[in-house]
Amino acid sequence: MAERTMIEAIRMALGRALADDPDVILFGEDIGIDGGVFRATDGLIQRFGSGRVRDTPLSETVIAGMAVGAGATGLKPVAEIQFMGFLYSAIDQLANHAARLRNRTRGRLTCPIVLRAPYGGGIKAPEHHSESAEAMFAHIPGLRVVIPSSPGRAYGLLLSAIRDPDPVLFLEPKRLYRAISEEVPDDGRALPIDRAIVLREGADVTLVSWGAMLTETRAAAETLGEEGISTELIDLSSLKPIDRPTIRTSVAKTGRCVIVHEAPLTAGLGAEIAADLAEHCLTGLLAPVRRVTGYDTVMPYPRIEHHYMPSTDRIAGAVRDVMAFA
């Protein structure tokens, strides 16, 4: 079986969804003949035609708003926003409409849509192209936010997002698009949504991260393992809803937790996880919960962006701190 990169796995999932369900329709900027700026939709217009893989005029508001209208009228739109930095114009449609339509009509109209957007830094992209704003969207009631961390999980989670009857924001760690490959069967099998994934089991510290940051977090776990520190590694995967039981169970076992995310510290999702642990696991904690995150600043330009991203050293340092506490 051929190994697939994440971008290939995403393309494979999109092709599978288009083949399986005639109501699935893709639209976005440059996704047709150009195949998307990252080539996520490369070749799909040739297979499925310009009626189902459509280039839109350059308007994120229309992409998101049109998805709401089409989704409520029987299609299953899977729309691409070119970069997360341009998702802000769509937030009105997501927060005011997509996330509320089922609730405000008491289920009469629904919004089975997926908005895909690449997020995150580390590829030396221009300004506005490297944001990690997932917490803003995770704050919206009625919206699911999913971030995959491997080709296989990208395939399975994108299929589950597309098959879900409610709106899902699917954020793709673009640093991982071509960084790793693994065997991914095109078997049409979706992964369960709303779940965190325990990537490795350990006894001393729970590490919670998601998306591209799992690369550094896993590297830190390897280093720490050589020092005799056993870490349990959790891929949050579903940023909304948060799979709280999986994290609580792990921390009840290890007594320590370090949360790693690329997004800025304040009001980031690490804060929510830390608060949840303080509320539910306080007596089992052996050390304060620590966060290793991007700084509270705008994403730097590429020449110094690597100083912004949480490094393996910073993560390992935080773990050693909590181990030293108790």
Binding site: A64, G69, A70, H97
Partner: peptide, 9 residues
Amino acid sequence: PHAAGVALA
């Protein structure tokens, strides 16, 4: 924009 999406569907 919703109306555009409805019309598309």
